[in-house]
């Protein structure tokens, strides 16, 4: 797979380092001359290009025409959008990923042809909200471009659903208790399965419902 990463700073360095394996070819583009020199010394198998990642000439030098994925991670939303659009329209890059700094732009970027637009602000805000609200939550993973969240939580003694069967729990229609872990045993629950305190529960929900479902399961607001 051929990957192009546009950005700067530590994030660019560590991403390039992580991506650069035998099966993957990574090209990084940064506007900072000194950073480029440093990167090319640190990253052996990586091609480093100094320039504006939204400039068609620079993308051509980066061989965007045969790239599989382009990631644009600059702190400016307009640069990320234009880099992704030019990669898509002019070079036919099949998958473009943009960092969205202003969370309000996420939807818009998808509408304008960016394959994946993600907002670090939104992800971190979501994590903090969840972690501070529910200490029992050990894991929160967004899947399918953030359309679905998988959450793991432990049922406390005082949980209102302890002793109830799944059929009797008023879960919203777009949420599912997918799996229970009880004394290190995995149980795929059915309607009759009864929940016990200390059960670990894996829940699939849409993100907007996640906190509602978790309040229901843990009894915490």
């Amino acid at each position: 797979m051929r990957v192009i990463v546009i950005g700067s700073g530590k994030m660019l360095y560590f991403l390039a380092k992580q991506f650069a394996t035998a099966e993957q070819h990574v090209t990084v583009i940064s506007e900072k001359q000194t950073e480029c020199t440093q990167l090319s010394r640190q990253l052996d198998s990586t091609l480093v290009i100094c320039g504006d990642g939204s400039d068609p000439k620079v993308l051509n030098d980066a061989e965007a025409f045969r790239a599989d994925v382009l990631l644009s991670l600059t702190p400016y939303d307009h640069n990320n959008l234009v880099a992704c659009q030019i990669a898509d329209k002019m070079f036919g890059v099949p998958k473009t990923i943009a960092l969205v700094n202003d969370p309000d732009n996420t939807e818009l970027f998808r509408k304008l042809g960016v394959t994946v637009a993600f907002s670090a602000t939104k992800i971190i805000a979501g994590l903090i909200e969840q972690q501070t609200g529910f200490q029992e939550i050990t894991n929160l993973v967004p899947v399918a471009n953030g359309l679905v969240t998988i959450t793991e939580t432990k049922l406390p003694e005082e949980s209102p659903v302890v002793g109830k069967s799944l059929l009797d729990i008023p879960l919203p229609s777009n949420a599912l208790i997918a799996c229970l872990i009880r004394d290190d045993r995995v149980i795929i629950p059915r309607g009759q399965t009864t929940l016990q305190a200390q059960d670990k529960v894996l829940v699939l929900t849409q993100p907007e419902n996640a906190s509602k479902v978790l309040s229901l399961l843990t009894g915490h607001e």
């Binding site: 939204s54 400039d55 068609p56 000439k57 400016y76 939303d77 307009h78 640069n79 959008l81 234009v82 659009q85 818009l108 509408k111 304008l112």
Partner: peptide, 27 residues
């Protein structure tokens, strides 16, 4: 890039009938 982005916002999000952008780079 700012001109291209705001022009597309005006066109797709706000449905402005006439949208124009000044672009220095011919490519």
């Amino acid at each position: 890039n700012v001109n291209l982005t705001v022009a597309q916002i005006a066109k797709t999000l706000f449905n402005v009938p006439t949208v124009m952008a000044r672009i220095f780079d011919p490519a």
